[in-house]
């Protein structure tokens, strides 16, 4: 075999070393970024909420506050805005109670396999609406679902719907009855309210405009 044209570009050891280096550097960068991200996406505390410190993922006790989703001029997209205190299922939840409730809600969301019809933070299946900002959906706020379920507050309407979804159909495609208990339903609503307070960099976009646009009637039936 002639050695005269043995350029480094055709050397297997060269490419092996390069592959190892590139992979190593990419992995180290990813781990470094992961450390930074972990800090930013760990859940805030009850104190943060009381002191008005904004966290990307607030504490579970955010369920005691009014949540809105508004356009932020500086960031160029919508962000969740945590406002005044409000009751949740008619009471204020202590930090521990709220954390317990969120735990049950998250567990239930997995046990009932929500993600294989819905999307959460946009990930999941595409058979049913995205749940990222479900708590803020006009459907629960404009009186439609409170009317159908005959409940006074939207959290009660949501819990009732989750327990008996196929009793309150809105479309031919319905949510099936998954045997959700009252306790689990309350927890799921807390899970949804907490998720709506997560800073998702403006996803879903124009959500806060949704109600207004639907009133315009271009596509409404």
């Amino acid at each position: 075999m002639s050695k005269k044209s043995a350029s480094v570009w055709t050397s297997i050891p060269f490419w092996r070393r390069s592959a190892a280096w590139v992979t190593g550097v990419a992995t180290v960068l990813l781990i470094w970024l992961t450390f930074d991200t972990m800090g930013q996406i760990s859940m805030g505390s009850d104190e943060d909420l009381k002191n008005g410190i904004t966290k990307r993922i607030p504490a579970a006790s955010v369920i005691n506050y009014h949540i809105d989703y508004q356009f932020d001029d500086k960031r160029g997209h919508e962000v969740p805005v945590i406002g005044e205190k409000e009751t949740f299922f008619g009471k204020e939840w202590s930090a521990e109670e709220a954390a317990k409730l969120l735990h049950l809600g998250k567990l239930t969301s997995q046990a009932k396999n929500c993600m294989n019809c819905h999307t959460l933070l946009g990930n999941g299946a595409y058979y049913a609406p995205d749940l990222t900002k479900a708590w803020l959906d006009p459907k629960w706020n404009d009186g439609t679902m409170t009317g159908i379920t005959g409940k006074a507050s939207k959290e009660e309407a949501m819990a009732e719907f989750l327990m008996h979804p196929s009793q309150y159909p809105t479309h031919a495609r319905m949510m099936p009855n998954l045997g959700i208990t009252k306790e689990e339903a309350v927890a799921l609503v807390a899970f949804l309210k907490h998720m709506s307070a997560i800073d998702t960099n403006g996803f879903p976009r124009n959500f806060s405009q949704s109600a207004k646009r639907l009133e315009g009637g271009t596509h409404a039936h």
Partner: peptide, 15 residues
């Protein structure tokens, strides 16, 4: 998405 901004009704209108 672009027109209705997502949400329950927007989803089903598109579907």
């Amino acid at each position: 998405r672009a027109d209705l901004g997502g949400g329950w009704d927007a989803f089903f209108i598109a579907q």
